[in-house]
Design a protein around this nucleic acid. Structure first.
Lengths: 198, 198
DNA sequence: GAAGATTGATTGTTCAATCTTG
DNA sequence: CAAGATTGAACAATCAATCTTC
């Protein structure tokens, strides 16, 4: 629109952001299709994220789900409720603090997640398998640098959590810049991967 | 979870997807904050996309909005309605075909969009301005190649539209692989940018 | 009858209020 | 009275049905 936007640098930046947006949405579409192909009964992508998260540890709570999924606790509570009703997730009162509800997968939930993971990995391998890992690593690092720089400059007072542990990533970027704001770090928990210090 | 996921290649792919997801969500957060800082009255990011799209041409319709935003026509119709009620968008019956409703910005809408664009560009320049354009171009091309490869391999029968013209991008990736499925191409319309043939 | 836009019913989201436990 | 989880009211998204125009 403005003169700035047609300016050379601005245009390149916008093209790049467009590429990134298109890419992530293409990946989402791909994975959602895998999900549909799997279709037990309608399971949504966000619900699968929830299952994945719950599978990581035995003591995750509704609040944790909200942080991870980036939704309100009200929404998280209802999302959990839906999965409980479908017999995929189990609620347990925490012994230590009876206010909190601990979540775990049922056998059905674990089995569904297992099958989804397998088919998702297969689909991703089909697309990315032929690429040289170094190229992917290089791209990861470039994007990570930018993300960190956004958080550092942006620096809004609000607590940001990248929810790195969910879905794709074992390490949390925020550990590098906000050790106190990363959910995983706050819990002092490592996920399944090996954490490489920066 | 499975053995495959802990495998070296799979891990690199997952880290990369995590980086991409984190990056796009960081950018979204950044821009949403610009939007809030601008706050006339609550305007959502998606509504701003709608304004931006309408600003591109004078004869966009409700169906076009739905395609662009990737939502149902019902949702698009209601989204338009909200903006009309706020005095940001105008509805006009098309002379040629009285079934269709043509959309345009009001003076208020144009002014709001202008201000948002300016502040967004400023914020983006702050983050990306120092980067060498070649690096951004290279990253764009890498992501684009992957996106195209996903669409090609995935190839689901459903009509995909990347909605490239919205928001960031002037060119549509899909022109390269699906000339008939790209909304912009289907309309034979170029947006504001110069279209560089591949 | 088909296509574009809108409306009704259902579902899922948020914010605010509530309830229980610490 | 603070913190975790849940529920009520309002709003937004979908699918299906409807209404108008081609």
């Amino acid at each position: 629109m403005s003169a700035k936007q047609t300016d050379q640098t601005g245009r390149v930046v916008n093209e790049f952001l467009g590429s990134a947006e298109i890419f992530t949405s293409a990946v989402s579409d791909l994975l959602e299709d895998e999900l549909e192909a799997l279709s037990e009964k309608k399971v949504t992508f966000s619900q699968m994220k929830l299952l994945k998260m719950v599978s990581i540890a035995e003591d995750y709570t509704v609040s944790n789900v909200a942080q991870f999924l980036g939704v309100s606790t009200a929404a998280a509570s209802r999302a959990v409720d839906r999965l409980v009703r479908r017999g995929l997730v189990r609620r347990t009162e925490a012994a230590a603090d009876r206010r909190v509800v601990q979540l775990s997968l049922t056998a059905d939930g674990a089995e569904l997640l297992e099958r989804y993971d397998a088919s998702a990995q297969r689909a991703l391998h089909q697309v990315f398998g032929a690429l040289p890992p170094e190229q992917l690593k290089q791209a990861s690092e470039f994007l990570d640098r930018l993300s960190v720089s956004i958080v550092e400059q942006h620096d809004s007072e609000r607590a940001v959590c990248f929810r790195c542990g969910i879905h794709f990533r074992d390490r949390c970027l925020l550990r590098k810049v906000r050790r106190d704001q990363c959910f995983f770090h706050a819990r002092g928990r490592e996920t399944k991967g090996t954490e490489r210090a920066d």
